[in-house]
């Protein structure tokens, strides 16, 4: 259920970007790492159900899953992890670092080329 909380943060970011440009957002791309502990379907649902009350009507949210990519510090091998074994698939070292796969980001926003009709202020009060 933390997807609802994260959806709120994402909608806040979209609203901030929109109001600073005075443009109407149309589509948002969200990168969801496989290790981000977020279920894309649940996040998508949370965004769709909260978007209108945050003043974002008609905006499409697209989830872009990101696989877990690791780099071995010992042999330099770069590899993807599909299960829970993060050891280097080349040399079996455990001295490895994650390059990508735990992100949860607003990657891109597409704006309509005409100014937003409503006020540039974010159209809600943050009550939390």
């Amino acid at each position: 259920m933390h997807e609802f909380d994260l959806a709120r943060s994402i909608l806040d970011i979209v609203n901030q970007e929109a109001s600073s440009r005075g443009l109407q957002p149309m589509a948002v791309e969200i990168t969801v790492g496989r290790m981000s502990d977020v279920v894309p379907e649940a996040l998508s649902f949370a965004l769709d159900t909260q978007a209108a009350e945050r003043g974002l009507v008609g905006v499409t949210f697209n989830m872009c899953p990101v696989p877990v990519t690791m780099l071995c510090r010992r042999c330099g091998h770069e590899y993807e992890v599909a299960d829970s074994d993060f050891t280097c698939s080349g040399c079996r070292s455990t001295d490895v670092e994650m390059i990508s796969g735990d992100e949860l980001e607003v990657a891109t926003i597409e704006f309509e080329d005409r100014p937003c009709e409503t006020s540039q202020e974010t159209p809600y009060e943050d009550t939390v």
């Binding site: 806040d12 970011i13 149309m26 980001e105 990657a107 597409e110 704006f111 080329d113």
Partner: peptide, 15 residues
């Protein structure tokens, strides 16, 4: 349509 790269983390406020 104008596509803008944002790359902002949803966890930024918490972090």
């Amino acid at each position: 349509m104008t596509k803008v790269t944002v790359n902002k983390s949803a966890r930024q406020e918490n972090d």
